[in-house]
């Protein structure tokens, strides 16, 4: 319950942070919202010798949207800020929905989007929509900067591509193409404070005919060690005029792709069933929304 002793650093600038991260290396953990980190430390699952608190670094915070260019979200931006962002709701609806579903009001007030991603829980709420939206992450260290598609950043259950001394600093969300809509859905036992048994996001762009699928990404969470980007669903639907038959087929394909396990929250069998139902619903929802854009 009690934390082991650790050194606490509170840098004020990005450069200071990179310097600290480089110097302290694997001894240090980055403290953003702390809603996962402190819990793990209390349970002695993590015992970092140093914490680098990045809440004082302005460069890591905030959401900027520029029409035609897309959105940039600082890694230390609070989930509650995303939840209440009007531009996110208009342009990146799936992420808005996921932000609303994450934890409780109190947790959302503390938790950050960077923390949710770097914790790399297979059940994380924001990873599925971010991947579906084609997000890239910017990774920084004293040595410089690199970019990665988010799906290449999360490499396994609680594993990321971060090297020693590196920090995830921001998310780059491309400007949605015309006639695009995104949706998120999830299932757990309760309707709040839940760890998802399955979650899912879809980002769908239609052709000018308003019926044919031009681009589609469907990403599943909590059914694989990392966000699972469906290959089969786009293969079935891109270039096709959507209808409920096709959606049904696509949903079955998604259920086939899922690699769920059984745990305290649900059996693998149930999860697969849920993938089928949720993907059908979320595809239909996205299709309807894209037609109205």
């Amino acid at each position: 319950m009690y934390l082991d002793e650790f050194e606490y650093y509170a840098p004020k600038t990005a450069d200071e942070t990179f310097e600290l991260a480089g110097r302290l290396g694997s001894q240090a953990k980055v403290l953003a919202g702390g809603t996962d980190l402190i819990l793990n430390m209390k349970q002695s699952l993590l015992k970092p010798q140093c914490l680098i608190d990045i809440n004082g670094v302005k460069e890591f915070q905030g959401l900027i949207y520029e029409a035609g260019k897309g959105a940039v979200i600082g890694a230390a931006t609070k989930i509650s800020e995303l939840e209440h962002s009007a531009v996110l709701r208009d342009k990146y609806f799936a992420l808005h929905q996921a932000a609303r579903e994450l934890g409780s009001t109190q947790v959302r007030a503390m938790a950050t989007i960077g923390g949710n991603i770097c914790n790399a829980s297979p059940a994380a709420e924001t990873s599925s929509p971010l991947v579906a939206l084609g997000t890239k992450v910017v990774i920084n260290s004293a040595a410089g900067e690199r970019e990665l598609p988010l799906e290449d950043f999360i490499i396994g259950n609680r594993k990321t591509a971060l090297e020693q001394g590196e920090l995830l600093v921001k998310f780059l969300l491309p400007e949605p193409a015309p006639q695009t809509a995104s949706c998120y859905t999830n299932i757990g036992l309760r309707n709040a404070m839940e760890i998802d048994a399955v979650n899912m996001a879809v980002n769908l762009t239609l052709e000018a005919d308003n019926r044919t699928v031009k681009v589609l990404r469907l990403v599943m969470g909590s059914v694989a060690p990392r966000p699972l980007v469906s290959v089969e669903v786009p293969a079935l639907l891109v270039g096709q005029a959507l209808n409920s038959n096709l959606i049904e087929k696509a949903a079955a394909a998604a259920a086939g792709e899922a690699q769920p396990i059984s745990d305290i929250r649900a059996t693998a069998e149930y999860r697969r069933e849920a993938v089928f139902v949720l993907s059908r619903r979320v595809l239909q929802e996205a299709f309807n929304a894209a037609q109205e854009v």
Partner: peptide
């Protein structure tokens, strides 16, 4: 992990 209903239920 012990699921008491929340206000949403």
């Amino acid at each position: 992990h012990y699921k008491v209903p929340t206000v949403m239920e």
